[in-house]
Design a protein around this nucleic acid. Structure first.
Lengths: 212, 212, 212, 212
DNA sequence: TATGAATGAGTGTTCATTCAT
DNA sequence: GATGAATGAACACTCATTCAT
C-alpha cells in the first residue's frame, strides 16, 4: 500500500533539518506555483519565498524539478492523510455520502495545493511522474473501497468496472472544485457544491424525471 | 452570444495569407505542445514545424503567447463546430443521452487538441484568458440548453442551479477522457466509457441500490 | 593523411559567415586563453573579445569546449600549413637540419598559439581529444619522413624505433621553446636556440668528448 | 641555494598535525588532479579524499590554490629527494649516463605526480609560481652540475651555454615520458626509453651517419 | 513578404569560502 | 580542533524578439 518514495538528494546530512527546510521550501513554492505556474517561477524566487539563499536551496535538492516533485508528493500525502479518517468500514450509502462530502471539504481547504498539483504535475519528468500517479491511484482506490464495502454490505449492486469509473468520477469532481473555481465558486459555496453533486451522484438524471 | 475574437496582430496585410499561415502554425504547434508543453516548446520549433522561418512566424503574431491563444481558440472553434450538429431542440432524455455520447466521441477524436488546450490554457495571460474561458462557458451553455429543453419539454424536473452543475459535470467528464487517459484508456474503450458514464449520469448510485 | 574534422555545430547557415565569425572568435580566444587559461576565461569574455554578443557566440558553437577545440584545431592547421613548405624529398642531413630550424622558427612566430594549445589541449573532452592528438601525430610523422628520407638516401643508418623517438624529441624541443620560455628566452635568442639545439641533436654529448 | 618555502597559512597551531593533515590532503589531491585536473576538482572532493570535512580542510589552507601549491611543492621535494642520491661527484660520462637513466626511472615511478605538476603548475598564481619555478631550476641545476663535473674532469669539452641547454633537454625529456605517455608508452617500455634516449643524447644524429 | 543573423536579459546550477556550534 | 550548513557571486547556456537585407 505504501508507495516507495522517490529519493530526492540532499547535500545536507541532518535529516530533521532536511525535513524542516523542505517544508519551508514547499510552502513557498506552492504559493508561487499557484500564482505563476512552475515554469514561470525561478529557483531564486523559491529560495526567497522559503527564506533562504539560492545556495541553500540547492543543498536540499538537485534540480528545480525536485521542488515540483516534493510539492506534489507532499500535497498528496496531506490529502491522503486527511482522507484516512474516513470510516471505510461502515459500508452504508450514508457513510459513502459523508465520505464524498468530507473529501470535497478537504479539497476546498487545500484548494491552492490541489490546483497546483493538478496543473503542474504534468511538468514532472518521466522519472518522477509514476510516483505521483501511483499516489493518485491510491486515492482513487480509497473511493473504490468505500464503494465496494457498500456492495459487500448488500447496500449496492454494482459491477467492478462501474465501481472503478464511479471512483474516478468522484475523485475528479473533487479536483474540479479547485480547477474550475473560476466558474463554480462564483455561484456555489462548498456546501452548495457538496449538496448538489452528491445529489446528482446518487440520484442521477433519472431521479429527476418528471412524474408522469 | 458570439464573443468578439481577441485580435492578434499581424504585420502582413493579406487576410487570406494570414489565415493560411496561422493554420499551418497552429497545426504544428498543437503537436509540439502536446509533446513538450507550451513552455518547453521554442518559437523556432513552432516556425520549423509550421514550415517557415522564425522571421516569418513573427510576421503573423506578436508574442509566443499569441500562438497559444490561437491554438486554444482554434481548438474551441473546432470542438464547438462539431457540437453544433447536436439537435438541441428535441428535448428528450434520449436526445440528451445521444448528445453526451456524441460529445465524448468528439473529445476522443480530438484528444491531442483537447489535452493541449486543457493543460496549457492556464499559461494564457490575464489578457487572453477571458476570451478562452468565455468559449468554454459557451460550450457548457450548450449542454445547459440541451438539459433545459428537456425540462421545458416536461421530460425532467430540475432547478436551474442543478442544470448548471450537471452541464459542467458533463463537460468535465468529456475532458476527463483526455486528461486521465493514462488511467482510463488502459481499461475502457471510448464506447465503454460512453456507456458507463451515461449510465452513471442517468441512474446515479441509487439506481444501483440493492433490491430490497 | 587528412584527418576527418570533428564537426562543430552552428545554428547559422551561411558557411562563409561561420568561417569568418569563428576566426574572429579563435583570435580573441587564443589571447584570453594565453592570459588566463581556458578555465578562467568566461564565454562572455570570449564573445566580447571576438566582437559580438554572448548570444551570437552561441550561434556558432554549442559549448565552451567547442571554442577550445576550434582553437586547437586551427593552430595545428596553421603550424602544419607552414611546415608543409619544408622540402621532404631532399634527404640530406643538411636539409634535415634546415627543416628543424625552420620548425623552431615557426614555433617562435606562433608562440602564444603553441603555448595555448600545449597547455589547454588536455582540457578537451574525451570526444574531441583524439582529433587533436591525431594532428599532433601527423606533425611528428612529418619529421619521421624527413629523417627516413635521409636513411633511404644512405645519409643515415637508423632503425625505425630510433627514428620514431628522434622525431618526437624534435617535436617536443619545438614546443619547449614556447612552454619553457620563462627559462629559455631570458638567455637565448631563437637563433641561439636553433644553433645550440641542432648542434646537440646532431653531435650528441660524445661529439663534445675531450680530445684524448 | 635553498629556496625559502612559501608559507601557507593554517589556523591550527600544532605543527605536527599540520604536517600530517597536509600530507593526507596532498595524497588525495594528486589523485584527483590527475583524473580531473585542478579546475574540475572541488574543494569538497579534496576534503573527502583526504578524509576530513570541508571545514577542516580550510583550517590548514586559505584557498584552493594553496592545495595546488602544496601539491606541486611536495612533488618537487620528492623528486629532488630521490635525485639527491645521484653521485654528482664522479664526473665521468658513465656516471652522467647513469644519472640520466636514474632520473627517467624516478619520473616513471612518479608519473602521476609529475604529470599533475607539469600540467597544473601553470594554474598557480603569480604569487606562488616563482617558488615552484625556482625548484624546477634547482633540478635543472643538478643536471648542469653533473655535466659540469665531467667538463672539470676533462671528460667533456662544452661551453656553459651548451651545458645549460643540455641540462634543460634532459629535464624535459624526463617530463616528456609522463606528458606524452599516450604516444610513447604504447611503443616503448621505460627501459627502451632510457636506452634510446641516452643513445641519442650521447651519439647525436651524426653518430648514426652511414659509413662512407 | 520572407529570411535568418544578432541580441542580451534571464535561468538553473555550482562551488569556494565562512562561521556558529 | 572539527564540523557542515549557509552563502551568493559567478558561470554556461537559452530563447523570445528584432531588424537589416
Amino acid at each position: 500500500m505504501h508507495a516507495g518514495k522517490r529519493k530526492v538528494h540532499a547535500s545536507v546530512k541532518d535529516e530533521q533539518l532536511i525535513e524542516k527546510r523542505r517544508s519551508e521550501m514547499i510552502k513557498g513554492a506552492v504559493h508561487l506555483f499557484k500564482q505563476k505556474g512552475f515554469h514561470r517561477t525561478t529557483t531564486r524566487e523559491i529560495a526567497k519565498a522559503a527564506g533562504f539563499s539560492i545556495g541553500t536551496l540547492y543543498e536540499y535538492i538537485r534540480t528545480k524539478e525536485d521542488v515540483l516533485y516534493l510539492v506534489c508528493d507532499s500535497i498528496y500525502d496531506q490529502v491522503k492523510d486527511r482522507l484516512q479518517r474516513i470510516d471505510l468500514e461502515a459500508g452504508t450509502l450514508e457513510s459513502l455520502k459523508l465520505g464524498i462530502g468530507y473529501y470535497f471539504k478537504v479539497v476546498d481547504d487545500m484548494q491552492d495545493e490541489v490546483l497546483v498539483m493538478y496543473q503542474e504535475a504534468k511538468s514532472l519528468s518521466k522519472d518522477a511522474l509514476p510516483y505521483v500517479l501511483k499516489k493518485e491511484m491510491d486515492m482513487v482506490g480509497m473511493f473504490e473501497r468505500l464503494i465496494r464495502r457498500c456492495v459487500e454490505n448488500g447496500e449496492l449492486e454494482m459491477e467492478e468496472r462501474k465501481i472503478h469509473m464511479l471512483a474516478q468520477d468522484i475523485f475528479v469532481q473533487g479536483q474540479m472544485w479547485g480547477f474550475r473555481r473560476w466558474a463554480l465558486q462564483k455561484e456555489f459555496s462548498i456546501d452548495d457544491y457538496i449538496d448538489l453533486q452528491t445529489d446528482l451522484l446518487f440520484s442521477g438524471i433519472n431521479g429527476y424525471k418528471a412524474k408522469q
